[in-house]
Write a protein that binds this DNA or RNA. Structure first.
Lengths: 220, 220
DNA sequence: TTTTTATTTTAGCCTTATCTAAAAAGAACA
DNA sequence: TGTTCTTTTTAGATAAGGCTAAAATAAAAA
C-alpha cells in the first residue's frame, strides 16, 4: 500500500486538478505557480512522487498522473469536498471561507471518519462550489458543464460551479445574487462586448461582463 | 504571539496532562514514556519550549508549565475534547475509538471552526470520557473528582471520568455496564481485598476489584 | 544552424523532529 | 566521602521539505 505524506498528498491533489482541466499533463512551472512553491522544490518532489509510482515523470517533459495516483488524489479530493459541505451546511461557513480550513481537514487519516461524515451529511453529490464529490471508489458522477456565456439567448440552466474560485470572485457572486444552485435564464446577449443579462430564480435580473459569465459553469 | 508547531503542541499538551494530576512538575523520562518518544528527543524539545517561554526548564531538574503555556495547552485540549464530542454524538463513534482521530483534528488551525463547532454541539461542558471542556478563555469548571474506591459504604455519586483511558479499559467498562454519566451507589466494600459492589442507575449491580474502582472517578 | 531566452534540474544549505551512542549530572548507597 | 547506578543531556546522523544559486536542457529567435 502506498503511503503519502501530508506534502505529497498536496502535490498529488494539485497535479490532479491541473491535469483534469482537459490537459493530460502539467509542468513544473505550472505546479510551482499554483502551489506557490519554488520550481526547484517542485522538481525534487516530482522525483519522489515518480519513485512512488503515483505519477509518470520524465525529466524536462512534464508530469502525467498514473491510475494509482488518480485514485489517491480523488481520495483527498473526496475528503476535502465532504468537509466543505460540513462547514457550510452544519457550521454556517460561507462558501468562500471553506477552502483554507478544508485544506487542513482533508489530511486527517481515518477511513471511518470519512464514511461516517458522508453518511451524516446525507451522501451529498456536490460540494458548495458545485464540484462533484467522488464516491469511496473514486467514481465521479459529473454532468456536462458549460460556461454561462456560451448559453444561447433565452436558454436556461443551473449554476453548478465556478472556474475561478478565488475568495474575491466568490464574494462578488454572492453580492450580486448569483450562487451555486441558482436557476438562471439568459435574457439578453450584447453582441459587441459579449456581456449578458440573466434572470436568477425567476425574480432578479443581473447584468454581467463576458469575463464573469465565462467563469461561471452551468448545466442545462 | 507565540506560535507552536504541531509537535510542540503535542509536547505541551502532554506536559499539561502530566502536571495537572496533582504534581506541579514532570520529568524528561515521564514525558518520554507517555509520548513514546526517546528521552534524548524530549530533552531537545524541552530546550526549545523553554526558549519559547511556554515552560520553565532547568536542565536536570524537570519541567514546570508557565501561565502562557497553560493557556496554549488548554486551547489544544479544548479542541481535542470538542472534536471527541462531535465524533461520539454526531458520527456515532464509540467513546473508546475517538482519541486517535481527535489527536489529529485538534491541530487544525481555525478559531472560527472551533467556535462554530462548540455552538453546533450546544456548548458541551464535558467530553465523552467525562473530562471538562475548557471555555475559550481556558477556564475549566471542574468538580472535585474522587476515585470510586474511596467512596464510603452507601455513598452515592456519578461516574465522570477514568484515569486509565486505554481502549481496552473503556471497552471493559462499557461491557460491564459502567459508563460516563452513570449514577452509582456503593452497596458493599470488601475489607480484605478492597473490592466493591455498586448499584448502577438503581437497577444493575456490578462487582469490581479495587484496581478497577481506583481507575474510575466520580463526583458526589 | 547558431544564439538567446525560458524552463527545469542539480547542488548545497537550512529547519524541524526524530534517532543512537556517548558523556555528564544527579541520586543512592556502602 | 567515594563509588555505582539512573537519569538527563549532548553530539552527530537521518529524513522530509523548503530555499537560493548555478548548471543543464529545451524552446524560440535570429
Amino acid at each position: 500500500m502506498i503511503k503519502l505524506t501530508y506534502a505529497e498528498e498536496n502535490y498529488l491533489k494539485a497535479i490532479y486538478e491541473l491535469t483534469e482541466a482537459g490537459k493530460r499533463s502539467t509542468s513544473t512551472n505550472d505546479i510551482s505557480t499554483w502551489m506557490k512553491i519554488k520550481p526547484a522544490s517542485v522538481s525534487d518532489m516530482l522525483r519522489k512522487l515518480g519513485e512512488k509510482t503515483v505519477i509518470d515523470y520524465r525529466k524536462y517533459y512534464g508530469v502525467h498522473i498514473t491510475e494509482e495516483g488518480k485514485k489517491l488524489a480523488l481520495r483527498t479530493i473526496r475528503k476535502h469536498r465532504l468537509w466543505e459541505v460540513f462547514l457550510v451546511e452544519k457550521l454556517r461557513f460561507s462558501w468562500d471561507e471553506v477552502a483554507e480550513v478544508a485544506d487542513e481537514l482533508e489530511h486527517v487519516q481515518s477511513p471511518t471518519l470519512i464514511q461516517r461524515l458522508d453518511e451524516y451529511l446525507g451522501f451529498p453529490k456536490f460540494d458548495p462550489h458545485g464540484d462533484p464529490i467522488p464516491d469511496e471508489f473514486g467514481d465521479v458522477r459529473s454532468r456536462p458543464r458549460v460556461p454561462l456565456n456560451e448559453i444561447e439567448l433565452d436558454g436556461t440552466g443551473q449554476i453548478v460551479a465556478v472556474k475561478d474560485s478565488s475568495a474575491a470572485f466568490l464574494r462578488y457572486l454572492d453580492k450580486v445574487g448569483a450562487y451555486i444552485g441558482a436557476r438562471i435564464k439568459v435574457l439578453e446577449k450584447v453582441e459587441f462586448d459579449g456581456s449578458i443579462e440573466i434572470l436568477v430564480d425567476n425574480k432578479k435580473t443581473i447584468f454581467m461582463s463576458k469575463d464573469v459569465a465565462g467563469n461561471i459553469l452551468v448545466i442545462q
